[in-house]
Design a protein around this nucleic acid. Sequence first.
DNA 1: TCCGGAATAA
DNA 2: TTATTCCGGA
Length: 495
Amino acid sequence: MKAGCSIVDKPEGGGGYHFPEWAYKTESSPGSRQIQLWHFILELLQKEEFRHVIAWQQGEYGEFVIKDPDEVARLWGRRKCKPQMNYDKLSRALRYYYNKRILHKTKGKRFTYKFNFNKLVMPNYPFINIRPNGVVPQSAPPVPTASSRFHFPPLDPHSPTDDSQPAARFPPGSLLPSHPEALGDAERKAEGPELEENTSDWRRDLLAPSHPSGSAAAQKRKPDVVLPLFPRPGIFPDHPHSPFAVSPLPGRPGMLNVPISPALSLTPTLFSYSPSPGLSPFAGSSCFSFNPEEMKHYLHSQACSVFNYHLSPRTFPRYPLVVPPLQCQVPLEEQPQFPIKLQPPPAGRKNRERMESPEEAAAGAATPQLPNPPARVKVEPAVEKEEEEALEKRDEVGEEEEKLPVFARPAAPAWIPIPAHPGSSGEEAAEASVEKPSRDSCGDPGNQEKREDALMPPKLRLKRRWNGDSRQEIPEGIPNGIWHLPKAVATASDT
DNA sequence: TCCGGAATAA
DNA sequence: TTATTCCGGA
C-alpha cells in the first residue's frame, strides 16, 4: 500500500550507523522496533533542515521547541505511515515519555519539551558527543555542555576522537551547516523521499554512514557529526559501532546484546525499567569511562535544568531505581544479570471508579466468560508500594543482593546524588536530590525519606548512608581504572 | 494547550 | 511495548 512507508530495514553491515539490530527489529523486541518517536525527534533536531520546525531551545540543555507542531506531526506521520497523525496524537506519544523519563514538558512554554539527556544520552551514549560548537551549528542541542564534557576518547585506534571521524555518528547530515537553503523546503522535499520513503535512507542520514556502502549514502554526508558514536569493536559483534554498545569495555557479547527497547535501554532509568526481565542491559552499559568531575558537573547542570522544569510530579519519585548508572567494576562475567530493577510507571489513578461500574461489566459481558474479569483492573502503583515491594524483594531474595553489590562498591559515582531511596538510580537520585531542596511542593520528599527509613532494611540503610557520604565528595576510591576516564577529552568545546 | 485514561493496533 | 486514536477534563 504505501510504498513510501517502508520501514525498517535494518542496516545490515553497510548501514553506517549501527544500532543494534534489536533497535530496529520489529519483532524481536517488545514493541515494534521501528523508529521511536524520541528518536525521530532527535533526528529532526539534529538536522538543520528542520530547524524551523523543531529546534533546540537555546540555553537549556536538552530542551527543544516544536515550532511547527503540525509539521512535526506530519513528518512523524510520514515516517510512520500514519497520515492521520497530528500534533495531538504526537504529543500524546510524547507524554508517554514523561513516565519513562525520556522527556518532560517544560511548563509554561508552548510546544516545549526537554530531553532527559542525562538519561538518554549520557549513559547510553557516552560516546556521543553533542557539541554545540564543533558540530552542531546552530541547532546545537543544549545538552552540549555536558555532552562535550563527556566526550569520550576513542577506544578505537582508527577512530579519532570523534568529531572528525564519522565512524558512526548520529545524524551526520544534520549537523552540518550545510545547505541552509535547501533547508527551506527541505522539510518537505528532503524528507519526502528520504525520510519517509525508506528508512534506510533516513537512517542513513541520521546515522551517518561512515561507510558509504551504497552510493547514495555518500552523497550528503558530511564530515561533521553531531553524535559521534564510540566505535569500539567487539561490543556488538555485529555492530561494532553501535552506539548502543553497552560499554566501551569489552564485554560479553551475549550478555550485552540484549534486545531492549532502545528507548528504555537508553536511559539508565530505563535500565531498571527493563521491559523484559530477561534482558539485561547493564552488563556493560553502565560501564564506560568518564571523568567523575565532569560527570558530576554535567549531572549537576542537568539536574538543575531539569529541576527548573517542573516534571510531572508523578514521574519523579516514582521509580525506585536500583542501580547506579555507571560502574564498571564488576567483572563482566560475574556481573549480575539484572542489577537493576525499575518498577513500572504508575498506572492511572482514576480508573478505579470505573472499574466497578457494573454496567461496564454488563456492557462488556459479551466477551467475558470468566467470572472474574478483573483482569483489567489497573492497580495503582503507589510509590510506597513500589518501594515496599522493592525492598521486600531485596529482602527476601538473596539473589537480589547480587545487584546490590553494585551499590556497595565505591564504584558508585560520586556525582550521583544520594539516591532518594534505595531503589533509585543515581540519576534519579540526582534529579530528585536536586529537586528536593527547593521543590517541596512537588511531593513529599521528606515524608518519603522517613518512610523509606522505616521500611529500609539495614543493609539498604547502610548503603544509603554510604551513598550519602560519598555524595559529599567524590570518592577517590573510585579507581581510575574503573572509571577510567579518558581524560579529557572533551574539552573541546564549550564555550 | 496540555494531561492522562482507555482501547486498540502492530 | 510503543505508539495511535479518542476523548473528557483542566
